[in-house]
Simulated assay, not measured.
Amino acid sequence: MTTPSSGPVDDPIADLSALLGQLAGDSGATPPTTEPSAEPADQPVYRNVEAFVGGYLAHVVERRLATGPTSGVNWCPRWWAHPEAISRLYALWRTWETLRVSDPQTGMSIWWRDHLDPHLAALTTEYGPFSRCSPDKHTEPKPLPVEPAPAEVLAQLPDVDTL
């Protein structure tokens, strides 16, 4: 005799199956069926970079986070407040969406190796945009100092109109 559970039960097999489905480009919202999908396969799984970071990336990337004297990677919960992070994470989202459709056999491996690993390393490194942040603290980004280029230098470079 079984008794009903009093709350949701974690099912590691179902969780892993859902994760593997996401890795394969399935939205994970519905179980697979033999009926044709109403949405074309080339439609994005995630509607924007925020949905991608919060709905996918934060769940599949496992790194020890630096907190106090503990070593680990630097991460900022307000990643969207860092211009470099927005640009890199947007690029990661777009390449993930592209590779899952264009190369369903090896695209995800390529994405991890050629895209996620170098971008994540650049974002979370000791000198990256999250270096002054922690999982519970955001520090406003500081742009690189820039001085205006002299006119004689700019005159030697082709204008956009001439490219």
Rank of each mutant, 00 (worst) to 15 (best):
Met1Ala: 11
Thr3Asp: 13
Pro4Glu: 13
Ser5Glu: 11
Ser6Asn: 12
Pro8Met: 07
Asp10Asn: 09
Pro12Lys: 03
Ile13His: 05
Ile13Arg: 09
Ala14Phe: 07
Leu16Trp: 11
Ala18Arg: 15
Ala18Gln: 14
Leu19Glu: 10
Leu19Tyr: 07
Gln22Pro: 01
Gln22Thr: 02
Gln22Phe: 05
Leu23Asp: 04
Leu23Cys: 11
Gly25Glu: 04
Asp26Val: 02
Ser27Phe: 02
Ser27Glu: 11
Gly28Ala: 05
Gly28Asp: 06
Ala29Ser: 10
Thr30Lys: 08
Thr30Ser: 12
Pro31Ile: 06
Pro32Ala: 04
Thr34Ile: 06
Glu35Ser: 14
Pro36Gly: 05
Pro36Asp: 09
Ser37Cys: 06
Ser37Phe: 01
Glu39Tyr: 03
Pro40His: 09
Pro40Ser: 13
Pro40Phe: 00
Asp42Glu: 14
Gln43Arg: 15
Pro44Ala: 07
Val45Tyr: 00
Tyr46Ala: 06
Asn48Gln: 05
Glu50Met: 08
Glu50Gly: 02
Glu50Thr: 15
Ala51Val: 12
Ala51Phe: 03
Phe52Ile: 07
Gly54Phe: 05
Gly54Met: 07
Gly54Asn: 15
Leu57Phe: 08
Leu57Ile: 10
His59Lys: 14
Val60Trp: 11
Val61Arg: 08
Glu62Phe: 09
Glu62Ser: 13
Arg63Leu: 13
Arg63Gln: 11
Leu65Asn: 02
Leu65Gln: 14
Ala66Ile: 02
Thr67Ser: 12
Thr67Asp: 04
Gly68His: 05
Pro69Trp: 01
Pro69Arg: 07
Thr70Val: 10
Ser71Val: 03
Gly72Pro: 05
Gly72Gln: 04
Gly72Arg: 04
Gly72Glu: 04
Val73Arg: 13
Asn74Trp: 02
Trp75Tyr: 13
Trp75Ile: 15
Trp75Gly: 02
Pro77Asp: 02
Arg78Asp: 09
Trp79Leu: 08
Trp79Arg: 05
Ala81Asn: 10
His82Lys: 05
Glu84Ile: 12
Glu84Gly: 01
Ala85Tyr: 03
Ala85Pro: 01
Ala85Leu: 06
Ile86His: 00
Arg88Gln: 04
Thr95Pro: 00
Glu97Leu: 01
Glu97Met: 01
Thr98Gly: 04
Thr98Asp: 11
Arg100Gln: 15
Ser102Met: 11
Gln105Thr: 14
Gln105Lys: 14
Gly107Lys: 08
Met108Val: 12
Ile110Glu: 06
Ile110Val: 10
Trp111Leu: 05
Trp112Asn: 03
Trp112Cys: 09
Arg113Ala: 13
Asp114Arg: 14
Asp114His: 12
Leu116Lys: 04
Ala121Phe: 12
Ala121Gly: 09
Ala122His: 01
Leu123Ser: 03
Thr124Val: 02
Thr124Cys: 15
Glu126Gln: 09
Gly128Phe: 01
Ser131Val: 00
Ser131Thr: 03
Arg132Leu: 12
Arg132Cys: 01
Pro135Tyr: 03
Asp136Gln: 14
His138Trp: 01
His138Val: 01
Thr139Trp: 00
Pro141Met: 06
Pro141Gly: 06
Pro141Thr: 10
Pro143Val: 09
Pro143Thr: 11
Pro143Met: 11
Leu144Thr: 06
Pro145Asn: 11
Glu147Gln: 13
Glu147Ala: 15
Pro148Asp: 15
Pro148Tyr: 13
Ala151Gln: 12
Glu152Cys: 02
Glu152Phe: 10
Val153Pro: 00
Leu154Gly: 00
Gln156Met: 13
Leu157Pro: 00
Pro158Ser: 13
Asp161Ser: 15
